[in-house]
Amino acid sequence: MQYLAPTSEDEVVAALAQADGRARILAGGTDLLVQMKADMIAPDILVDIKRIPELREITREGGGWRIGAAVSGAEFNERADICADWPGLAEAFDLIGSTQVQGRCTLAGNLCNASPAADSVPAMVAADAVARIVGPSGTRDLPVAEIPVGPGRTSLAAGEFITSIFLPARAPRSADAYLRFIPRTEMDIAVASAGVSLTLDDNGSCVAARVALGAVAPTVLLVEEAAAALIGTKLEGAALAALAQACESAATPIDDKRGTVAFRKQVVGVLARRAVKIAQDRASGKGAGERA
């Protein structure tokens, strides 16, 4: 195996092109190294992208935020400004692994690992985040929701890699929230999860919503019916019940060592409902809401 640490995106593109599919991108490495040690993958080349300066940066762009692909969870969460805009995504990112893992893990890595249970992905999908992809045929932008196509599989073409994640500008009275269920309080993979992003009007009615669910389908689900149940309501009893029902119906989970089908379906609706209440409190200025 070869280890490369290029200092520009072009070098990465060239290295990936030469490697003919036998290379892997190393960002935080918190999934990659585990998989290598477990003999699940055996790449010939690792391309470490952490020495590319622009990939380590968080920048303002058109009222939104561009997060470099090598920015770690710990670096992200130290930025009060971005956390104020996207508290739900900040929480989701922060929930990936331990403090030690936070020192390394990245949004792009969490996304490209393509686990249906990835914590940051439902929050990014709810946020309508967009990934910037660089490859042999140039640069393209793709909604985060379209990147995972199945467990462990992405829509990236050969030789492509993600250089940044873009979070759009926030409308007034908007907020997001993310909740996951795990058996312990930390260190587990999500058994079910829900990310919600909302915008309210002056009267507290919901005018825009996105609801994304994790660990209940082969990929993270964006549930339009769940959002529809919220829009035009004050996010009270009937709307929340309809939201939970829509989430339960959309979920197609499996039985595995982490949970059952019945459990995941029941719990994902509960999480979505609770996440809506947290996002609502935040959007209406009632503070940060309770942390899961």
Binding site: G29, Q100, G103
Partner: peptide
């Protein structure tokens, strides 16, 4: 802070 087992 990092886990040295997860870093090359």
């Amino acid at each position: 802070l990092v886990a040295s087992c997860l870093m090359l």
